[in-house]
Amino acid sequence: MSQETLVWRVVPPILRHSRRAHRMIERSFYVNKLSWMIVVSGFFEPLFYLFSIRIGFGSLVGDIEFAGRSVSYAQFVAPALMASSAMNGAVYDSTMNVYFKLRHARLYDGVLATPMSSKDVAVGEIGWALTRGTLYSIVFLGCLIALGLTDSWTVVLAVPACLLLGAAFASVGMAATTYMRSWEDFDWVQTIVLPLFLFSATFYPLSSYGVWGWVVQISPLYHGVALVRAACLGIATWGIAVHVAYLAALTVVGLTIAARRVDTLLCK
């Protein structure tokens, strides 16, 4: 057996059968080559966020006890904002954007008449969401460092953490989008995303949720926040493996459902 096939054998089937997915990402580059301003403007968002917590919260709320050490509140919240921003970007790109192309522009009908498959479409669209998300994460990371909100080299791992979180949300988001029947259905997205943002150990540690802690732990954002926070504060625990596994599993399940649904919707 050649080395290539060996490598592919350990990869989930959805990724094994989407070897042209990068073509979908390439398309998005073509679409965005004229609108770089929109992409660039997205860079300012993290800056505003971080300034506000640095100046606002930072001075009002004192240091808190986290993972056996004392950290400033700004240091505690900044990673959560980075994770939330990754979530929002991934959700937007995989829901509204995909819905438009799926139902209105009939983009994928044209794509599927070529050697591209529904798996290429699903993986490629999520790949684009992650490409853009990673750019934002890197900018966010730069801001974190510039504003002195981190003191560990491990902070660079916050970028892959956001990538994984983005993958989970984009995959589940795209799978959900294939079930949407009208723009009104997108109200549900907000209905779900907002509580996730507020109750994923974003603004206070898991311990403050008391007996409701287990509910918080269902939230994928909780696992993303935990990862990014661990990276920013330089914390290494076995819990990290759990967070990674949870998000990776969501990604594979979401992707598989999304690809299958694109197939059922368009290849009748």
Binding site: E26, R27, Y30, V31, A105, R106, L107, G110, T114
Partner: peptide, 15 residues
Amino acid sequence: NLDSELTVFDNLVVY
């Protein structure tokens, strides 16, 4: 089902 987000030329190239 042309790609409405691309120019005429890019429609062909991307395809």
